[in-house]
Amino acid sequence: MRVEKRFTMLALASATLAFGMPVMAQDSKPATTSAKTEAASDIDADAIEALNKMGAALRALKEFSIASSTTQEIVLETGEKIQLDGFVDWKVRQPNALYVDVRSDRKNREFFYDGKDLTIYSPILKFYTSIDSVNGNLRDLVLKASNDYGIELPLTDLFLWGTDDVSDDLIKSAMVVGPGTINDDKVDHYAFRQEGVDWQVWISQTTSLPAKLVITSLDDPARPQYTARLNWDTTATFEDSAFKFVPPEGAHKISFEPDSMAAASAEGEGS
């Protein structure tokens, strides 16, 4: 059995928000004051404030690109971990246009969204499939793709953080690790824990944008990690054609099924 998970704050937040608060039995006792105090002591207000500031910076962006290098750990049946390196390039125009190029050691996918239709293309296999008439902003696209079709774009937390879809109430602990430097940029390093996951973020002191993310799954004893280093260009501009898919010569359209592109991969690209 192949074990592969997408360890992102979005996946965690979606699962937690779907279940909501746990239902308490009628004879259960309320949490004690000491327990509440202990929980509160695990939350550094400065770390939460940094997240809120990051969210505001993300929401203020109108047009930008991100070039990110990624490392994902995969846990084999034997418990052995292997690492897969990759790259994710984003072109984004708010409120409703994006292009994403996802490349790894095992596969390559391109995602086009022009404000109406989402198209997924495999340059290696030359197969593409579309979800027509999404007709929403990028927040709507992210949630619809995930909830309705099981499509998880990498780093889509960037479109949800700072909105009502992600709540810092989910955070069990938050700490300020300290200052650092990434690519000559001064950053502040923070660490957080939520149900089933630990995650770290390095936030630029200059822009308040995330420069690096590390997400660690606690559900697997091997504790696999996902790491992304983010290089931002907030001055980028794009033509409409950057977000519109035009089938290249030799490309073939396949009907959309949640696992259709995965099935295509099994035929010859790797998974």
Score class of each variant (00 low, 15 high):
residue 241 S to V: 10
residue 16 T to G: 02
residue 141 L to T: 04
residue 138 L to K: 07
residue 237 T to W: 07
residue 29 K to G: 00
residue 132 D to P: 03
residue 235 T to Q: 14
residue 190 Y to N: 10
residue 15 A to W: 04
residue 248 P to Q: 06
residue 162 G to Q: 12
residue 56 A to T: 15
residue 153 L to M: 15
residue 70 T to G: 06
residue 230 L to P: 00
residue 38 E to W: 04
residue 242 A to N: 12
residue 158 L to G: 04
residue 137 N to V: 01
residue 104 S to I: 09
residue 191 A to H: 14
residue 214 V to S: 02
residue 1 M to K: 12
residue 35 A to Q: 15
residue 94 Q to G: 11
residue 41 S to F: 05
residue 222 A to Y: 07
residue 226 Y to E: 15
residue 111 F to E: 01
residue 143 L to I: 14
residue 53 K to M: 08
residue 156 T to V: 15
residue 132 D to G: 07
residue 170 L to Q: 04
residue 209 L to W: 04
residue 12 L to S: 11
residue 37 T to M: 12
residue 49 E to P: 02
residue 28 S to Q: 14
residue 244 K to L: 13
residue 269 E to G: 03
residue 75 V to Q: 09
residue 68 S to W: 11
residue 194 Q to W: 05
residue 94 Q to Y: 11
residue 267 E to T: 13
residue 132 D to R: 15
residue 198 D to V: 10
residue 211 A to F: 06
residue 228 A to R: 10
residue 247 P to V: 06
residue 213 L to F: 14
residue 104 S to F: 06
residue 256 F to H: 05
residue 219 D to R: 05
residue 153 L to C: 10
residue 66 I to G: 02
residue 179 P to W: 00
residue 91 K to L: 12
residue 73 E to V: 05
residue 135 N to I: 07
residue 228 A to L: 07
residue 3 V to L: 09
residue 271 S to P: 00
residue 30 P to G: 14
residue 141 L to I: 09
residue 13 A to C: 10
residue 192 F to E: 01
residue 148 D to E: 12
residue 156 T to G: 09
residue 234 T to W: 07
residue 124 I to A: 11
residue 30 P to R: 13
residue 75 V to W: 03
residue 98 L to T: 02
residue 147 N to T: 12
residue 177 V to C: 02
residue 75 V to S: 13
residue 218 L to V: 10
residue 68 S to E: 14
residue 139 R to G: 06
